[in-house]
């Protein structure tokens, strides 16, 4: 029970768990959408659980990451013409996007100094997305899955041999569609910071 409380406290405070052969990290994520003609407001509500297994006698690791990000933006009243010209919708609305990418990761680590271990990597996988448009007193929902590719770079800052901090940046390209607004992708820049623990 005591262990559980301690580990819970670490995770909830955004700590990464990090060991000699396996690393487990929890980060706080900030995401900046780049679909500039639609959602542009930065999301500060996001996080990630990142697990990496270091391949022995090499500079590589593989693993998986589960992210989540919640976006929200108000759009003033405007008219959306359907592309075929046979319909139009006029309203103001609040758009909310909740994205959960689950990716397999592969990382390469550069030569490390005493404290800093820089890396580059890529995550490939699936992106679940819920998109809601709230207008007047109503809501339209759309749920779908897409493919996501996410190149990233960052660094692990080691406090000692058993834990440290992790900093990263990435660009996420997801093929999730928004039929209501005729969009075929949702892309974003992401920045994350957190703590990690090493596990044997």
């Amino acid at each position: 029970m005591k262990k559980l409380i301690i580990t819970s406290a670490f995770l909830l405070s955004g700590i990464v768990i990090f060991a000699q052969s396996n690393l487990l990290a929890g980060t706080w994520n900030i995401n900046v959408p780049t679909n500039s003609d639609y959602m542009t407001k930065t999301s500060f509500s996001g996080g990630k659980i990142d697990y990496r297994h270091f391949i022995k006698h090499s500079n590589y690791s593989y693993g998986f990451a589960l992210d989540w990000a919640s976006y929200e933006q108000y759009f003033p009243r405007q008219t959306f013409q359907k592309p075929d010209g046979n319909g139009a919708v006029t309203s103001d609305f609040v758009a909310q996007v909740y994205q959960v990418p689950i990716v397999a990761t592969f990382h390469y680590y550069f030569k490390e100094s005493k404290m800093v271990k820089p890396y580059v990597g890529i995550g490939l996988g699936a992106s679940y997305m819920e998109q809601s448009l709230y207008y007047n007193v109503y809501v339209s929902d759309e749920y779908n899955w897409g493919f996501v590719a996410r190149p990233e770079l960052g660094a692990i800052i080691k406090f000692d041999e058993s834990w440290g901090a992790i900093l990263g940046a990435n660009y996420s390209i997801a093929t999730n569609k928004t039929d209501l607004l005729n969009k075929s992708s949702f892309n974003s820049f992401g920045f994350n910071i957190g703590l990690a623990v090493l596990i044997e």
């Binding site: 929200e72 009243r77 139009a88 919708v89 006029t90 309203s91 709230y134 207008y135 007047n136």
Partner: peptide
């Protein structure tokens, strides 16, 4: 979501 900013105008489709 914060829906306080939504107007009461009709959504027109």
């Amino acid at each position: 979501p914060d829906l306080g900013q939504l107007s009461v105008a009709f959504a027109v489709q």
